[in-house]
């Protein structure tokens, strides 16, 4: 899989932007895989979907993740949100289909459009 984050690290830093990732993985799973990402990000574990539900992003369709004892009961719809310093959502990109996701060029374009105009 392409590492969108590696390409954008400099762009994030230039804009003083914090990156937060949220998944249903346990902290130790995230830690284990963290080596694969060079991204300086806050990587959060949302096993009980508390954050996902606060954002209303639980996938209510069928998900193909593992099911059963000890597995997360649902998964978030993959979503990328660009939020300004006041906490307002400037832009979001959501995969209606989980096989698609925001590439680096899409995220970069959004940052240029919404953050670089001083708006």
């Amino acid at each position: 899989m392409r590492r969108w984050s590696d390409e954008l690290q400099g762009e994030f830093e230039a804009r003083g932007l914090k990156v937060v990732t949220i998944s249903t993985d346990y902290p130790e799973e995230i830690r284990k895989r963290r080596g694969a990402h060079r991204l300086q990000a806050t990587m959060l574990s949302d096993r009980n979907l508390g954050v996902t539900d606060a954002f209303g992003l639980r996938n209510e369709g069928i998900h193909s993740g593992p099911v059963g004892e000890g597995e997360a009961e649902a998964l978030p719809v993959p979503t990328t949100l660009l939020v300004d310093k006041n906490g307002v959502v400037l832009w979001m990109d959501q995969a209606e289909n989980y096989q698609r996701r925001s590439g680096p060029e899409v995220v970069l374009a959004a940052m240029q459009q919404y953050l670089d105009t001083g708006g």
Partner: peptide, 21 residues
Amino acid sequence: SKQQVAEQAIKVGDTIPYFVA
């Protein structure tokens, strides 16, 4: 692979909710 989100899903212009993780 179709996804569905709830009606009250966050959208552009909303303020993000307070969350703890």
